[in-house]
Amino acid sequence: MERQKQSLFPAFKYHPDPLAAGMIRRQQTICPVCQQIRAYVYVGPFYSEENVTGICPCYIKDGSAAQTYHGQFTDLIDCGWREIAPEYLDELHHRTPGYSSWQSETWLSHHNDFCAFVGYVGWKEIQPFAEEIAVDLAKLKTLYRLTQAQLERWSTGDSIQGYLFQCVVCGKNRLTTDAS
């Protein structure tokens, strides 16, 4: 069982590709949860009283890391998720890799469930579905007092970028940012 757990890379409902997002890397580590050598390491945020590094994805997925260190992988800003079932909130906080943002993460929801984090996007990357996320863009323009010209200067990895999500129920794309 232990060998099987080590060799499998778990699937995460709310973060389907943490490797592409850079939150998990293929890098040998000694996992602080199981004290075993692992092939993947989590490098994203983990909120705990202890400074914990080197967690392997398997112990994120099964909740052991969060339970062992009384921590969580997200430090959410409430974006209308108070209507979401407690088990979904538990899965997001304790069994889902987080993502890095300039401020506290905003994890979008749709259909009374959290959306899946797709990745970091700039203006170029959101163009193919700008119409689909028009409502989100309008909210962001108002909230952050952004002009169209400012939106068009967004780029991935810059101080102002977007965070793309996708509804796990209907597949609708959603967008947020933490522009200052």
Results as ranks from 00 to 15, higher is better:
E152Y: 01
R145G: 08
P128W: 09
R145F: 12
K141F: 01
E131C: 14
F129H: 12
G157M: 02
Q161G: 00
E132M: 05
W154G: 00
E125Q: 15
V168A: 04
A134E: 12
K139G: 07
Q166A: 12
A138T: 11
Q166P: 15
Q127Y: 03
I126V: 08
I133R: 12
D158W: 14
L140T: 00
S155N: 07
Q161T: 06
F165V: 03
T156M: 06
Q166V: 06
G157A: 01
G157E: 02
I126Q: 06
L143S: 10
K141M: 14
L137E: 01
L140P: 04
F165E: 04
E132Q: 12
Q148S: 09
T147N: 09
I133Q: 03
G162C: 01
D158C: 08
V168P: 05
L151V: 02
I133C: 14
A134C: 09
L164H: 03
C170N: 09
I133E: 05
S159W: 13
C170M: 08
K139E: 11
A130K: 13
S155L: 03
L151W: 04
L137K: 02
C170P: 08
G157N: 06
I133G: 07
F165S: 09
V168Q: 03
Q150H: 08
Y144G: 04
P128V: 14
W154R: 05
K141P: 06
G171W: 08
L146S: 04
E132A: 15
Y163C: 02
L143G: 07
F165H: 10
T147V: 11
L146R: 11
V135E: 04
I160N: 10
